[in-house]
Design a protein around this nucleic acid. Structure first.
Lengths: 133, 133
DNA sequence: ATTAAATGATACCATGTTAGTATCATTTAT
DNA sequence: ATAAATGATACTAACATGGTATCATTTAAT
């Protein structure tokens, strides 16, 4: 079981990279070489972060990326949700229908509680927290 | 994102079903029809639970399944781990190598903390808890 | 003994997701 | 005009998921 996919992992690392550079732009090539991750894959990831206004991109020679918002405004939860959709332990759909049995609902209650804890913990950790020190 | 796969969901429901029946055996056909889930898939699931000694199976006519251990000894964590492997937010492997950068290690620390919370919460909920009431 | 009803063991398969690659278009500094 | 950068998009191999299908074996009941 692995909850966080590769793109989220790369996105977080890339954001940390960019956040550490106080001024100027960071090109995909630089980030990719710094993190030693595949450049074309990283491009796609940064394009998504750009569309979501988490980073700003600048095209053309000398272009690159910088953060669009403060690193303490970007949480793990934000990045995960962006690439993997809403955080959920169990979607609890049953052929597009809802929980027909009481015990399943009871299971759902238990899972919902744990899910809320997870989400709040993932919300609490920001890019700033990760690059601190 | 959906953390719990279908087989785990079915396994938990099936265990609840079996646990509720105080005495005697429960056949796959009965459980499948009670839960309205596909019989052949459920068979495979119960065979795994049997191999892991969570249920006991009895072959032949009149056969079926019963719990092998107390319902309060079976946690959500147990079932998830059995079908989906160790619970992990991020395996943190990087082409089979370990975290070459400090910031990644820092990310790992943050994730490990949340992972531990998740595991302990999932360990704390048992089949008994789910069928209670 | 025979048969029906149950599980055990496996092999198979369609679909979707993951983790990328590859290209062409566009923008911009020089 | 050119090189260097991102934008958009299409494609793909490998694996995971959520099953189905079969045959073998065991056991209760007749």
């Amino acid at each position: 079981m692995n909850l966080i996919t590769r793109d989220v992992d790369y996105a977080i690392r890339a954001l940390c990279c960019i956040a550490k550079k106080k001024e100027g732009l960071y090109s995909v090539a630089e980030i990719a070489s710094c993190l030693k991750i595949p450049l074309p894959f990283l491009r796609k990831i940064l394009q998504i972060l750009n569309k979501e206004n988490i980073v700003h991109s600048y095209k053309g020679k000398g272009g690159g990326f910088k953060l669009a918002i403060d690193p303490d405004k970007i949480s793990l939860s934000d990045v995960i949700t962006l690439f993997q959709g809403p955080i959920s332990l169990n979607d609890h759909t049953f052929k597009r229908r809802k929980c027909p049995h009481i015990k399943e609902c009871n299971l759902k209650k238990k899972l919902d509680r744990i899910e809320k804890i997870m989400v709040s913990e993932l919300k609490a950790v920001t890019i700033r927290d990760i690059i601190r020190h």
